[in-house]
Computed example of a mutant assay.
Amino acid sequence: MANRSVESFLTFRRPFSVGKEISSQPAGAYKLVIEEELIEGLSFLAYRRLSTVLEIPAMGIGTAVRQFIDVAPTDLDVALEKDAALVSDEETIHELYSRDSMMARARDFQNSVPD
């Protein structure tokens, strides 16, 4: 069967962990390699995932030692969703407490108070 490797990079903006396989890692860009095999006998191209491997540590962190850890795709999805939620919460908090936002709310409040 024909196999293929698909490489991509994931960016975590906050420290993260993935399932039980990967303990807390620093924020950064991580190389992800997905190995797939061609499903033969179909009238169209289709691939079956064989493995999902995350390279530790993040790209750009100077170290001669690298680990390639097989991770469950669902655990990886959960880690990415948590990271996105944390970033979204931080952006919301920043927006709520930014100077311009606070000034706009103060103006709205002043305009809503009857004379």
Results as ranks from 00 to 15, higher is better:
residue 94 H to A: 14
residue 15 P to E: 03
residue 36 E to C: 01
residue 115 D to C: 01
residue 65 V to S: 09
residue 54 L to A: 06
residue 90 E to G: 02
residue 30 Y to I: 00
residue 95 E to K: 15
residue 10 L to V: 06
residue 6 V to M: 09
residue 97 Y to T: 15
residue 44 F to S: 10
residue 37 E to V: 07
residue 63 T to C: 05
residue 44 F to Y: 15
residue 80 L to I: 11
residue 97 Y to E: 08
residue 65 V to W: 01
residue 56 I to M: 13
residue 107 R to K: 12
residue 106 A to T: 11
residue 21 E to Y: 00
residue 97 Y to D: 08
residue 115 D to V: 06
residue 1 M to I: 10
residue 108 D to R: 14
residue 19 G to W: 12
residue 59 M to V: 14
residue 115 D to K: 11
residue 112 S to M: 14
residue 80 L to W: 00
residue 35 E to Q: 13
residue 55 E to W: 08
residue 81 E to H: 12
residue 32 L to G: 08
residue 21 E to K: 13
residue 54 L to N: 07
residue 50 L to I: 13
residue 96 L to C: 09
residue 27 A to R: 11
residue 54 L to D: 05
residue 75 D to T: 03
residue 56 I to R: 04
residue 95 E to P: 01
residue 76 L to C: 09
residue 22 I to T: 05
residue 78 V to H: 08
residue 84 A to C: 03
residue 92 T to N: 10
residue 33 V to L: 14
residue 104 A to L: 14
residue 109 F to M: 13
residue 67 Q to A: 10
residue 10 L to I: 14
residue 43 S to F: 12
residue 96 L to D: 14
residue 76 L to H: 07
residue 22 I to R: 01
residue 66 R to M: 00
residue 74 T to M: 08
residue 2 A to H: 05
residue 33 V to D: 02
residue 115 D to A: 08
residue 70 D to F: 02
residue 22 I to S: 04
residue 32 L to T: 07
residue 100 D to C: 01
residue 31 K to R: 15
residue 15 P to F: 03
residue 9 F to M: 09
residue 15 P to Q: 05
residue 112 S to C: 06
residue 112 S to H: 10
residue 75 D to Y: 09
residue 94 H to K: 14
residue 58 A to E: 08
residue 9 F to T: 11
residue 86 L to Q: 14
residue 111 N to R: 15
residue 104 A to I: 12
residue 29 A to F: 04
residue 18 V to I: 15
residue 10 L to W: 02
residue 69 I to N: 06
residue 57 P to C: 03
residue 1 M to G: 15
residue 52 T to R: 02
residue 19 G to T: 02
residue 34 I to Q: 09
residue 78 V to N: 05
residue 111 N to F: 10
residue 11 T to C: 06
residue 82 K to C: 03
residue 98 S to L: 02
residue 76 L to Q: 08
residue 6 V to A: 10
residue 32 L to D: 04
residue 36 E to Q: 15
residue 30 Y to A: 01
residue 110 Q to I: 05
residue 113 V to G: 07
residue 82 K to W: 02
residue 27 A to F: 07
residue 71 V to I: 10
residue 5 S to C: 05
residue 63 T to N: 10
residue 71 V to D: 12
residue 82 K to E: 15
residue 101 S to W: 06
residue 70 D to I: 01
residue 103 M to D: 11
residue 69 I to L: 13
residue 64 A to V: 11
residue 12 F to Y: 04
residue 25 Q to T: 03
residue 91 E to L: 08
residue 91 E to P: 00
residue 3 N to M: 04
residue 72 A to L: 13
residue 36 E to D: 09
residue 30 Y to D: 00
residue 93 I to T: 14
residue 14 R to V: 06
residue 38 L to I: 05
residue 19 G to H: 10
residue 98 S to I: 03
residue 25 Q to D: 01
residue 23 S to D: 11
residue 95 E to G: 14
residue 62 G to W: 02
